[in-house]
Design a protein around this nucleic acid. Structure first.
Length: 275
DNA sequence: AGTATCTCCTGCGTGC
DNA sequence: TGCACGCAGGAGATAC
């Protein structure tokens, strides 16, 4: 499940092949992703040069001559770099190919098709998907004062709050669980109960967990693969996610599990306090 | 405006 | 072996 570290890992993997490269050809095999792919996309992209690549939230952005290609991996999406001369046949869920410099292919694969490939010519700050996004978690904008200000009036749970892209981007279910464990906060705690000190621990935990996950190349549970086809190794470092009934690594108590907003919450009842 | 719920989709695990 | 079923979840859409 690609969250920020998986998208960042993918970006770093594909960037050397795509930066300053000229788009030679596009193959679209399946137009219906989360939103339909623009039927004219192949004609629009052909001949453009990819000026630069970057990430905002969980979106990968390929800035071209005349606009930006927006790629979201959804739940099960992944991107690979293939060598064109090897002519590797597309499989069932390989929905999109981008050939650059007649040399390399960026191939998008997404069994569940929750992802998206969109083209926009407007500045991203004005784009509806980007206009209301919160700060990046690994920047200074995401700090204790900011989180405390946002949380002190909210009646949703703290887990829901940190997974809300208007508050902070890139924190999905896995890393929300892990960060709350590291901060010692029960995921079902009502956000407005948190003190400034709680927010301080949580801010630190989110930053540390995300940075570690990026360093490990992301978390591979089932679908995720880096752009070279290899898995990420952060799954081995998970403390609570997916560990229901197993011993807490800090206190040996059993990890518990409940569902909140259709998402699994894992926590240690001894290490994590309901404030 | 804030909050909760619904929705899209496929592959996999489980139980009969 | 086969089938029905439930589950996983990012995040926009919708309803209050």
């Amino acid at each position: 499940m690609p969250e920020l570290p998986e998208v960042e890992t993918t970006l770093r993997g594909i960037e050397p092949f795509l930066k300053h490269a000229k788009i030679s050809n596009i193959v679209i095999r399946h137009f219906s992703l989360r939103w339909p792919i623009n039927p004219q996309l192949a004609e629009i992209l052909a001949g453009q040069t990819i000026q630069q690549l970057y990430r905002r939230a969980k979106y990968l952005l390929l800035q071209c001559d005349n606009g930006t290609l927006i790629i979201h991996l959804g739940m099960s999406g992944r991107l690979r770099i293939l060598t064109a001369s090897e002519n590797i046949a597309a499989e069932k869920h390989d929905h999109f190919d981008l050939l650059v410099n007649n040399e390399h292919i960026l191939r998008y694969t997404d069994p569940r098709r929750f992802g998206a490939i969109l083209w926009t010519e407007q500045p991203l700050a004005q784009h509806p998907l980007f206009a209301h996004l919160g700060p990046e978690p690994l920047t200074e904008l995401f700090n204790t004062a900011y989180l405390f200000d946002k949380s002190k009036t909210r009646r949703c749970t703290i887990k829901t709050l940190i997974m809300n892209g208007k508050i902070v981007v890139g924190v999905g279910n896995i890393y929300a669980n892990e960060a709350l464990f590291m901060a010692g906060i029960y995921p079902g705690t009502i956000a407005n109960k948190l003190t400034s000190k709680d927010c301080d621990r949580l801010i630190t935990a989110i930053k540390v967990i995300l940075a570690r996950a990026i360093k490990a190349g992301g978390t591979t549970l089932k679908d995720f693969r880096k752009s070279d086809g290899k898995p990420g190794y952060f799954a081995q470092e998970l403390s609570v996610y997916g560990r229901k009934g197993q011993a807490c690594l800090q206190c040996n108590n059993l990890i518990e599990h409940y569902k909140e907003a259709q998402r699994g919450s894992f926590y240690c009842p001894k290490c994590q306090k309901n404030i």
